[in-house]
Design a protein around this nucleic acid. Sequence first.
DNA 1: GAACTTCGTCCTGTAGAAAGAAAAAGATCG
DNA 2: CGATCTTTTTCTTTCTACAGGACGAAGTTC
Lengths: 396, 396
Amino acid sequence: MAQLTGRPENAHQARLLCLLRDGGRRSRAELGDVVHLSRSKLFLELDRLVALGLVEQAGLAASRGGRRSGIVRLSGQLRFAGVDIGATSIDVAVTNGELEILGHVSAPCDVREGPTVVLDRALDMLDKLRSEGLFREIHGVGIGVPGPVSFRDGVPVVPPIMPGWDRFPVREVVGQRLGCPVLVDNDVNIMALGELHAGSARSIDDVLLVKIGTGIGCGILVKGEIYRGMSGSAGDIGHVRVDDDGPECACGNVGCLEAYFGGAALARDAMAAARSGRSPYLADRLDQGAALTAADVAAAAAAGDAAAAQMVREGGRRVGQVLAGIISFFNPGLVVIAGGVARLGHTLLAEVRSVVYQRSAPLATENLPIVLSELGDTAGVIGATRLISDHVFSAS
Amino acid sequence: MAQLTGRPENAHQARLLCLLRDGGRRSRAELGDVVHLSRSKLFLELDRLVALGLVEQAGLAASRGGRRSGIVRLSGQLRFAGVDIGATSIDVAVTNGELEILGHVSAPCDVREGPTVVLDRALDMLDKLRSEGLFREIHGVGIGVPGPVSFRDGVPVVPPIMPGWDRFPVREVVGQRLGCPVLVDNDVNIMALGELHAGSARSIDDVLLVKIGTGIGCGILVKGEIYRGMSGSAGDIGHVRVDDDGPECACGNVGCLEAYFGGAALARDAMAAARSGRSPYLADRLDQGAALTAADVAAAAAAGDAAAAQMVREGGRRVGQVLAGIISFFNPGLVVIAGGVARLGHTLLAEVRSVVYQRSAPLATENLPIVLSELGDTAGVIGATRLISDHVFSAS
DNA sequence: GAACTTCGTCCTGTAGAAAGAAAAAGATCG
DNA sequence: CGATCTTTTTCTTTCTACAGGACGAAGTTC
C-alpha cells in the first residue's frame, strides 16, 4: 500500500480531493461529468492521486449502459482530528477523509487551567480514540479555542476568558507533538464552517453563526470562507452595547449584550429569580444544592416556568436587537443560532426572529432564514476538521 | 493604429493590464521583475496585448547599466466613464486607462425625476465631455446610484429614495446607448472602491466607507473587493436603531440613525434651532430666504455657532454608536468617513472616534485609523471607473 | 449472439512555455 | 576611441503537457 506522503500537486488535484470529500466516493466517469477536464487529463491526475496515496480504487460502479466505471474514493487511511476547546469543556473527534465522525469524546475541562494542562488533556483524549483503533496516523488537526486568534501565527491573542493562553504557540506545540499540519481558529469560526459543511448552511455563501454560550460570538462566512477581519477579532459581538444604562459588564463598559444574556448574566438572573420567589422552579432547584446556571434556566423554561421563559424572551430580544443591526449591515443569506443556550429552542428563536424581522432592512430579511443549529455539539469538531482538510487538500 | 477590439485573453494579460493601470507606464524589464513569468512568456503576452490595441509602446526607459528597455503603457485611446448619481446631483467623469480624470462635470439633478430623465441628463453630460475632445470612444462605464442594486442584473431594487427606478434596466439601457460594457452598483460601494484605488484605503484589505449625506450608507470592502451580501443590500446602516424612543423615521420604524443625522433630520433640527433662537447664525440664514439644509449647519458650525456645533457632535455620537457595534463585528483595517456631511470635518470625526474607541472591542480598534475621505467629490466617479476597468481588464 | 453503448488505455499532433544562444544597445574603463 | 562587460531583446531549440482520437475491453439490449 502506498503511504500517505503528501499534498496535492496542483489545483486540479485539490479540486478532485474536495469533490471526493464533499460528495463521497463516485465513479471516474461521474467525476468526468462534473469537472471540466479531458478524459486523459482526469485519469492522469487521478492516477497521480492514487500514487500519492490520497485516493484509492474501490471496485466498479453500476453500469450506465456500457462498461462499468471504476469507483474512486479518498484513502480509507485518511484521518483528521477536530478539537473544540470551550470555556468549560473539550470535544475531540476523529473523522475519515470525508469528514464523517468515527469517534467523538467530550469531557469537562476549565480553559482557565492554562494551555499546557488543557492541550495535554485534549491530546490524551485523542490518544484514547487512537487506542480504540480508530486511526494509526493523523493527517491534520483543526483546533478551535474560545477567544480571538491570530490565524496566521496559530496563537490566541489577548483572549479575555483564557488566562495564560496569550500568544501561547498552540499550533506549533500540537504540530510538533503529532507531526502533522495543525490550524487554530476561533471556536465560532469553526462552528460556522461545520454548519457550512454538514449543517444548515450547506451551499450558502454568506452566513452568520451566532453562538450564545458562556460568551456570545459570531462566526462569519463570506463566499463560504471564514472572514476574520484585520486582526482576527471579527464577529466579536458580545460587547456591543444594547442599552446605555444597562448593567455593568466584566469588560468595563456598561450595557453589553453579554451582560444581559451571557452564561454569567443568565446565572445571575436565575439566582435573583429564585431568591425573590418569582420562579418556583428555580427556587426548588436552588434548594437542592448547587448554584444555578444557564442550563437550569433552560430546564425551567422547558418545564413551563413563567419567570424563566420571560428571561429567555428578554434575552432573545436583546440578541435580536444586536442582530438586527448586523443583519442590515451584512445582509447574510442565513443566520444560525448555536451554543448551549440554543437548547432554549423555539422560545428564543421566535423572539430573535420577531425583533430582527421587524427592525432590519426589509431587503436584508425578505429571504433570510434564521434557524437553530442542526449539528449541535458536533458543529465545532466537524468545522475544525473541515478547516484542516481544506488546508491539506489545497495545492501548496 | 490597431483598434481596441477587446478583452484580455487570459489571467496573465489581465494581471499585466492591472499592473499598468495601477502603477502606470513602465519598462518591460521592470514588469519582468514584478511578475513571475519567464521572459519569453512575458514578451509574448505583452506583444499580444499590443496587437489587441490595449497596450502600446512608449519609447525607451533609462538604462539600468545595459541596453535600454522598452516602455509599455496602456493605450492612450482607452477611456472609462464614471457616473455618480446622487440624490440631488450627478457627477460624470472621463478617465484614461490609468483612471486619471481627464474631465469632470457635476450638475444638480433630482433623482426623483425618474430614470429616463436622469440617465438622459447623465448621457448629455458625457456628450459634453465628448465635445470637448476628451474621447472618441468609451470602453466602459461604471454607474453608482443612491440605493440598493442587484449587481448581477444591473438594476436598482426597491430603492427607497428613487421612485420609478425599481428594476429599471439601467445597465442595459446605458449599454445599448453607448455600445460598451456597463456595470451598476450602489453609490457607497463605488466610493469605497474609489478610496481603495486612489484614496486613503490604498492597499488595505478590509475597509468600511461610511457616507453621511442625504442618507447614511456604508460601503464594504473584503479583501479589496466590494462585499454586496445576499441580495445586494449590505451596508444599509441608515435604519439601524440607535434609541428605542427616538424620532419617527420615514421608513416606519423609530429611532433610526437617519432620523437623527440624515440630511432631512439635520435640516429639521436646523430649522428648529433657528426658530427657537438657539442659533443666531442659522436664524440669520433663515431670514435671508430659502429653507435651511445640512450645508447651512456645516457653515454654521464652521463659523463657530455653538448650537450647530452641538448638533454635529450629537450626530457624530449617534454615528459612533452604530459604528462601534459594526466595527466590533467586522474588524476592518480602516474606516473612511465621506459624504457631504464629512465637510463638518474634525468636529464630527473627533466625536465618532471618541465613541468608537471607547465602545468597540479593544482588539478591533487598536490599529484602526478612522479618517475623512481624501477624494471628496471624486471618490464616486473614480470608484465607478475602477469598477468597470476591473471588469474590462479581467479575462472573460 | 449481434449491435450498440460506455469506459479505460494508448498514441500522436499541437500548442505553449522554458531555456539558451545570439544579437542589439548601451555603460565603463583604460 | 576602442575593448570589454551589462542589460535587454529576439530568435531558436527543446521539452512538456494536454486535447483528441483510435481502439480494445466490458456491459447492455434485443
